[in-house]
């Protein structure tokens, strides 16, 4: 079947199988950042945005994306790099396999929550599993990143 969607800002038309998962579709479109870590919607590695909201591309049919907007890490490259550099500063990317999914959800959180507490951050990101870091370094990176943003917007007060 045919679908029309906006993928990372570009209008595309594609032929898909009716049962094709969005995860496989975006990878076939060259969005290699999107990873599969499980088959049971538990790990968050495959997080993309559908109309701006973070969803699991492993559990979303590509057909559902018809007429909608899909964003992967490749589509928010500059922001991803900005936050990613904070992760890297902490060494908190480690193996890096879960990083793109985490980054997509952190950027979604940033849009949805203003000034989140530590508990709110943990709850928002609970669906992003990581086996390397123990999460602490990620939390340090997120805090530094959010604080930096605050610092920028409040720059005049300093």
């Amino acid at each position: 079947m045919e679908i029309n969607l906006i993928l990372n800002g570009k209008k595309i038309k594609a032929q898909i199988r009716p049962d094709e998962l969005l995860l496989d579709f975006v990878r076939a479109q060259g969005c290699w950042s999107v990873k599969r870590g499980c088959e049971t919607a538990n790990c968050g590695l495959c997080t993309v945005w559908l109309d701006g909201k973070p969803v699991l591309s492993c559990s979303t049919l590509a057909a559902r994306a018809d007429g909608r907007t899909v964003t992967t890490l490749e589509g928010v490259a500059a922001e991803a790099e900005a936050f990613g550099s904070y992760l890297a500063e902490e060494g908190a990317e480690q193996c890096g396999f879960c990083s793109p999914g985490l980054i997509m959800n952190v950027l979604a959180m940033e849009r949805e929550l203003s000034n989140p507490s530590e508990e709110e951050i943990k709850e928002y990101l609970a669906g992003n599993l990581c086996r390397c870091t123990g999460y602490m370094g990620q939390l340090r990176a997120i805090r530094n990143y959010l604080n930096r943003k605050g610092g920028e917007t409040n720059g005049e007060n300093r």
Binding site: L87, A88, G91
Partner: peptide, 21 residues
């Protein structure tokens, strides 16, 4: 010293660097 990993930015920007990629 806590230097950044040489491959860190490739990883956090989602570059195709793993086996399946």
């Amino acid at each position: 010293s806590p230097v950044m990993k040489k491959d860190a930015m490739a990883l956090v920007t989602g570059k195709p660097v793993y086996t399946d990629d």
